[in-house]
Simulated assay, not measured.
Amino acid sequence: MKPPVSVGLIGSQFISAIHAESLQHCPQARLAAVASPTPGNAAAFARRFGIPRAYTDYRALLAQPEIQMVVVGVPNHLHCEVVLAAAAAGKHIVIEKPLCLNLAEADRMIAACRTAGVKLMYAEELCFAPKYVRLKQLLDSGALGAPTLLKQTEKHDGPHAAHFWDVERSGGGVTMDMGCHAIEFFRWMLGRPPIKSVYAQLSTQVHGAKTRGDDNAILILEFANGVIGMAEESWTKLGGMDDRAEVHGSEGVAYADLLHGNAIETYSARGYEYAVEKAGSTKGWSFTIYEEAWNYGFHAEMAHFVDCVQHDKTPLVTGEDARVVLEVIFAAYESARLGRKVELPFVTNAARPIDLWKPSGAR
Rank of each mutant, 00 (worst) to 15 (best):
M1I: 06
M1P: 14
M1D: 12
P4C: 08
V5K: 03
G8A: 13
F14L: 15
A17Q: 15
A17M: 11
I18H: 07
A20I: 04
E21S: 01
C26M: 03
C26V: 08
R30T: 10
G40I: 11
F45T: 04
P52T: 14
R53S: 14
A54M: 07
D57W: 00
D57Q: 10
D57V: 11
D57G: 12
Y58G: 05
A60F: 03
L61K: 09
L62P: 04
L62S: 06
Q64E: 15
Q68F: 05
Q68S: 08
V70S: 06
P75E: 01
H77F: 14
L78W: 10
L78N: 05
E81A: 14
H92I: 01
P98D: 07
P98C: 08
N102W: 05
L103R: 10
A112E: 10
V118P: 03
K119S: 15
L120P: 08
Y122C: 01
Y122A: 11
A123F: 04
E124P: 00
E124Q: 10
L126D: 02
L126P: 00
P130Y: 01
K131H: 04
V133M: 02
L135A: 13
L135I: 00
Q137N: 02
D140E: 13
D140P: 09
S141L: 11
K151Y: 05
T153S: 15
G158F: 03
G158W: 01
P159V: 07
W165Q: 05
S170M: 11
G171H: 09
G171I: 04
G172E: 09
V174Y: 07
V174R: 04
M176P: 01
M176V: 15
D177F: 14
A182D: 01
I183D: 06
R187L: 13
R187K: 11
P193K: 12
V198Q: 06
Y199T: 12
Q201H: 13
L202H: 07
H207P: 02
R212S: 12
G226Y: 00
I228W: 14
L238P: 02
D242E: 09
D242K: 05
V247A: 14
S250R: 09
G252L: 11
V253W: 15
A254L: 03
Y255R: 03
Y255I: 00
Y255S: 02
A256T: 15
L258I: 01
L259M: 12
H260T: 14
S268V: 02
G271Q: 06
G271K: 07
Y274P: 05
S281P: 05
T282H: 15
T282G: 01
W285P: 00
T288V: 05
E291P: 07
A293K: 13
E301S: 07
H304P: 00
F305E: 03
C308Q: 05
D312Q: 14
K313H: 13
P315C: 08
T318R: 15
T318G: 09
V324S: 10
V324G: 04
V324P: 01
V325D: 10
L326I: 10
A331I: 13
A331S: 09
E334G: 08
L338T: 08
V342D: 06
E343V: 02
V347R: 14
A351R: 15
R352F: 03
